[in-house]
C-alpha cells in the first residue's frame, strides 16, 4: 500500500493539460480571464515521480527504470499522475512491469485533487471582485515495487 501521504498528494506540472473542460462554457470569455493556479505542491521524496504531458514519454519511462535499477536501488517508487496524465502514468507503470518480466508489482490508488482557478474580470472597475473557484480533478498514485521475497 502506498503511504497515506501520497494519497493526498497532488501531481504537478500537468496542469496545462489537465482541464479540457474550461469555464468558457459558463462564463462569457470577454468579461473574465481565466488564470489557473498551480496544483498544491507537496514535498517530494527521491522515489516520487510526477508524470506530466510535456516531457517525452520515453524519458519519463527511463527515469523510472533508472530509479529502480540504478545505484539508488529503490525497492519501490511512486508514480503520480493528474488529470490527462493519468493515462500516461498507468502506461508507464505497466511498461515497467512488462520490462521486469513479472518481478515488479503494482498497487494503484486514486484520489481527488482540488484545483484553484482565478477569474479576473476584464473590466475590473465595473465587474467587481475577481472570482476564485475550485474544481476537482482526478489523480492516480501507483506504487511500483519489488515484492518481499
Amino acid at each position: 500500500m502506498a503511504e497515506p501521504r501520497s494519497q493526498v498528494s497532488a501531481s504537478q506540472k500537468s496542469l496545462g493539460f489537465s482541464s479540457s473542460e474550461g469555464p468558457a462554457t459558463e462564463m462569457d470569455p470577454v468579461e473574465y480571464t481565466l488564470r489557473k493556479r498551480l496544483p498544491r505542491k507537496l514535498p517530494k521524496r527521491r522515489n516520487d515521480v510526477y508524470i506530466n504531458m510535456k516531457t517525452d514519454f520515453k524519458a519519463q519511462l527511463a527515469r523510472c527504470q533508472k530509479l529502480l535499477d540504478g545505484g539508488a536501488g529503490h525497492r519501490e517508487i511512486c508514480i503520480h499522475g493528474l488529470g490527462l496524465a493519468i493515462n500516461r502514468a498507468i502506461n508507464i507503470a505497466l511498461q515497467l512491469q512488462a520490462f521486469s518480466q513479472g518481478a515488479l508489482q503494482l498497487a494503484a490508488n486514486t484520489s481527488t485533487v482540488e484545483l484553484i482557478d482565478d477569474l479576473e474580470p476584464e473590466d475590473p472597475d465595473e465587474a467587481g471582485e475577481p472570482l476564485t473557484r475550485t474544481r476537482n480533478n482526478s489523480a492516480i498514485h501507483i506504487k511500483v515495487f519489488y515484492p518481499n521475497a
Binding site: 473590466d123 475590473p124 472597475d125 465587474a127 467587481g128 471582485e129 475577481p130
Partner: peptide
C-alpha cells in the same frame, strides 16, 4: 486606461 488592463480603481 482600462484598455491596457486594471487601473487604480480596480475593486480588489
Amino acid at each position: 486606461s482600462k484598455d491596457a488592463g486594471p487601473t487604480f480603481a480596480a475593486v480588489s
